[in-house]
Design a protein around this nucleic acid. Structure first.
Lengths: 106, 106
DNA sequence: ACTTACTATTCATTAATGCAATATAGGTTG
DNA sequence: CAACCTATATTGCATTAATGAATAGTAAGT
């Protein structure tokens, strides 16, 4: 899988996955890597950045089988940001599909 | 438009647009920027890299209204690369759409 | 002459990811 | 008991791509 494609989209993915329930970092990394390859070392710095930017608040809970889990909860600002990113992603990916169609499938 | 979304995708776009006809750099930059914002300063270095990597051959032609144009012609290797990138893009963008659906639209 | 549109090049800056190393807790196996 | 594996979080370094600005040259219009 092309490494570059993921830039910026990983952000959209973690925001989307926390829209309805709080999640912890490792869980997010595993969830996403079911769809496309992603390293845990890519997810944590991202979560920290998004928290610093005010899109997440966090809290700790014990895990039944390991160190305590750090849960990420979307803030109202985070919700807004998620919606904006989703809209941008849709229009961007449609533009790319169109270029492929015009170029490749003619 | 989110800058990060474009990473790697610009490469796919210029390859796709040269699949059926040779194009010159400025033309590519303008074509793509009809769909989403892109700086000419992003396109030329990209074209040079792709040429170095063997995906393009180039030739010059006079322009009816300006300096000579440098045309980019897809090599067989370039065609192969385009097909691979297209497949990767489709599976990637579908994966992202699915994550959005699971997360946001539940 | 001056400006604007067309076309190509180059460089410093910014920003995100991958990978590897580190750490800690709990369970499993030799 | 020691070694090891899984779950979980953190951090630093190398890699890589897009941007914006500066540079430059041609042709056409005022």
């Amino acid at each position: 899988m092309n490494v570059q494609f993921k830039k910026g989209v990983l952000e959209l993915c973690v925001l989307a996955l926390t829209a309805w329930e709080d999640r912890y970092g490792y869980e997010l990394a595993v969830s996403i890597s079911h769809k496309f390859e992603v390293a845990v070392g890519s997810v944590y710095p991202l979560l920290n950045r998004l928290t610093l930017e005010g899109y997440f608040s966090t809290y700790l809970r014990e895990s039944p089988e390991g160190p305590p889990r750090k849960y990420y909860k979307l803030t109202p600002l985070g919700h807004t940001h998620l919606m904006e990113l989703t809209v941008e992603w849709r229009s961007f990916s449609q533009a790319v599909d169109q270029i492929i169609k015009e170029g490749v499938e003619r």
